[in-house]
Nucleic acid binder design. Sequence first.
DNA 1: TTACTAGAAGATAATTATTATCCTTTAAAC
DNA 2: GTTTAAAGGATAATAATTATCTTCTAGTAA
Lengths: 134, 134
Amino acid sequence: MNYELLLREHSLKATPQRVGILSLMQTSGHLDVEELFTEIKKQFSTISLATLYKNINAMMEKGLLTEIKIPNQKSKYEIAKAPHIHLLCQECNEFIDLKLDIGCLVDEAAKESHYRLKESSIVLSGVCEKCQAK
Amino acid sequence: MNYELLLREHSLKATPQRVGILSLMQTSGHLDVEELFTEIKKQFSTISLATLYKNINAMMEKGLLTEIKIPNQKSKYEIAKAPHIHLLCQECNEFIDLKLDIGCLVDEAAKESHYRLKESSIVLSGVCEKCQAK
DNA sequence: TTACTAGAAGATAATTATTATCCTTTAAAC
DNA sequence: GTTTAAAGGATAATAATTATCTTCTAGTAA
């Protein structure tokens, strides 16, 4: 993935810090601010927390990153992608994406409410397979 | 609704402040901390913000209140009730409950992931009927 | 390539949100 | 009524986020 290009396409300067943040998000999937700061400091030891916040916000405004708000957890961030849902294991805190067609749910909700629906934020919580085995 | 009884049943002392918070939540539906503080001060002019926070947390621990985390908004609270989904109008900020059977979504997710699912947090955002008409 | 400029980085202060502490008061049980 | 654990209120402390300001650099165009 060419993050320099991606950033420029979204009218953001392609700084090394931003590229680092994006590639971290790509490999790690879901990180909160603190985790992201810990990781990014390994590449840019002098990076400021303010820079991290500013970049997260800038990239969210441009639609490159998405914030995921999770019950009883800190917000996590992910690279924006096609709509999907999230699963959280309440025991080991595993947090995964699940591609699932939510069209029927959204249609039903739109029909009942007469809302024109555009975005969805779905987090289901429970116990993952491994933790069930314990 | 007898909030004194409800509180005692959940091993919480039935203080006037708590009863006030619950009845406010009942009438208003969804409030954030700031809104709740503004409202509750009309009944208890000297109530401390710390008291409000402590009570919200105590009532959440006992399962009387639920926190709803919403993209791009402050968390709101509601009286705990049967699972349902939330709709947010991105224009007028209307925020409503919708009773909708999500069993099939949850079943599907459980089947795909092998999670044993227990909780759901679903917020759909878009434009309400009134704002569409504008 | 060099020079220019808007925007970004980094350091830090300021603000906001939330929690902890401590002392006083009160709900609930006897 | 008395007793006591728990709650209220005031405030301090902490955590999370944003604002400010100066220096630096990516991107642009001569």
